[in-house]
């Protein structure tokens, strides 16, 4: 799984989001390390949706009518499972790396 997919799944684990919010959150979380252009963002969302890891959901009934027109995405059960699996793999790798003193 590419880091971008992982970031997207991670962000969606806290609840449904729309594309723009996802972009902001990821850029923020990575401290600007991941810069997400719109074309690749929606391409990635499309791939995740096609593979059944996320699905489109109704947006929250908020006060901003503008927000309601947005497309909101949420993790599916498979997506949540996949996120847990990927995280475990990454944690294992990090633990190994740490054991070898890579991170000091």
């Amino acid at each position: 799984m590419t880091p971008l997919f992982f970031h997207l799944l991670l962000s969606l684990s806290e609840g449904p989001r729309h594309g723009y919010a996802l972009m902001q959150e990821i850029e923020e979380r990575s401290g600007g390390g991941v810069v997400l252009g719109p074309s690749s963002l929606y391409y990635a969302l499309g791939r995740l949706e096609d593979s059944g890891l996320i699905r489109e959901v109704d947006g929250p009934a908020g006060d901003d009518p503008h927000e309601e027109r947005r497309r909101y995405y949420a993790l599916t059960a498979r997506g949540r499972q996949r996120l847990a699996d990927e995280t475990r793999v990454l944690a294992d790798i990090v633990a190994h790396a740490r054991a070898r003193g890579i991170l000091g």
Binding site: P38, L41, Y42, Y43, G46
Partner: peptide, 12 residues
Amino acid sequence: YRARFGEELERH
């Protein structure tokens, strides 16, 4: 792709 995300992309 464009048919699927076009609107959303423009809004974005």
